[in-house]
Design a protein around this nucleic acid. Structure first.
Lengths: 202, 202
DNA sequence: GTCTATAACCAGATAGAC
DNA sequence: GTCTATCTGGTTATAGAC
């Protein structure tokens, strides 16, 4: 029941979301006016306000597609006492990687509009809870002085590598990620975290 | 000759730059008005226009402090034929890391305001040439189909790890990076690039 | 469900006095 | 070098017709 109108194409609401995703990503959220969005869709500015209460809500609707990273990420760092379980971290990163690769455009949007995304917290206190819980847990983790600097750097670097590899090498690509990208990235993350490779004894 | 007025404190121009750096980083470039900047400095909005021709020029002046990453980065990827010299890449990353760690606040600003930084290209065609050459060479590299996916992912991930480790683990910290951070990060980058560690034979 | 028209606002920027 | 005063333009958002 994703869309009930196969014959007549995507709904206006979905077309607005697609246009906004492209424009916000290319030009930036703040530098894109709703007039531009409406012109690309072929409707008027006022029509947008029928589907979304505000510009921020339009952005929030896009970012919600990235859900899932929140779930996996929150599971990932529960107690934070004792040594880091790198096997578990690796597994969580694998789930996150799947999410990022299947929703690449949204993650590019988020990477390029960090400050705009943060303001959603103010306008939408209850929604996006997962997304923000993840950010919070993450900050608590990398800033936790009880953990060794080495572990914090390793996990932090692994996440950076994941994002840079998944987003940087697929910028401008179509819907499909390159064959083998996921495996290459998981291998990198294994190397960073020091988790041995399964089929390799070098 | 950094500043000739030790007794009377930093010049107005420098105080504007400091205030703008903080506000642009916290709230985002687009969501910060020049009125806010001027109020924090204790001057009027018009005074800003004496020191900087436009809001973009103010941002550009901040970003110029990050120069150096351009130089090292451009040297790094010259011909791009044949296999990647990971030793050379490692060395360039070390220089870049020094630059990032010594100018962390500016790099946080850039990371959080990517789209705003990109518009500088339009307003300032000749300046920031190094910075933009680096971005261009980088894009050519990670998107180069003649290189193996593995090599592209490795280099791309190393850069992501560098940035995430250097910026993420120092967010909110004072002027000094944690002791040993540089060494930990270089070790991670070595692991990613497959360059053996100098004093270690495990 | 979409449009016209307009309100209300605030941004960046300029001119010229001091 | 800094201020007061103002202009100009575009922005989000709303009210109400169709």
């Amino acid at each position: 029941m994703e869309h009930t109108d196969e014959a007549i194409g995507p709904s206006t609401r979905e077309r607005i979301l697609e246009a906004a995703l492209d424009l916000f990503t290319d030009q930036g959220f703040d530098k894109t006016s709703l007039r531009e969005v409406s012109e690309r869709v072929g409707v008027t500015k006022a029509a947008l306000y029928y589907h979304f209460r505000s510009k921020e809500e339009l952005l929030a609707s896009l970012v919600e597609r990235a859900h899932g990273i929140g779930r996996h990420g929150i599971d990932l760092f529960p107690p934070l006492t004792g040594p880091v379980d790198f096997e578990a971290v690796l597994h969580a990163f694998e789930l996150i990687l799947d999410q990022v690769l299947s929703q690449r455009k949204v993650f590019v949007l988020m990477e390029r509009n960090r400050t705009a995304i943060e303001t959603l917290r103010d306008h939408d206190p209850e929604h996006l809870a997962e997304h923000q819980q993840f950010e919070q847990r993450w900050a608590e983790f990398v800033g936790n002085p009880k953990l060794s600097l080495r572990d914090r750097v390793r996990v932090s670097s692994a996440f950076g590598a994941l994002m840079a590899g998944a987003i940087g090498t697929t910028r401008g690509l179509g819907a499909e990620a390159p064959e083998g990208l996921k495996e290459e990235l998981l291998a990198v993350i294994r190397d960073i975290l020091g988790v041995p490779h399964p089929h390799q004894c070098t």
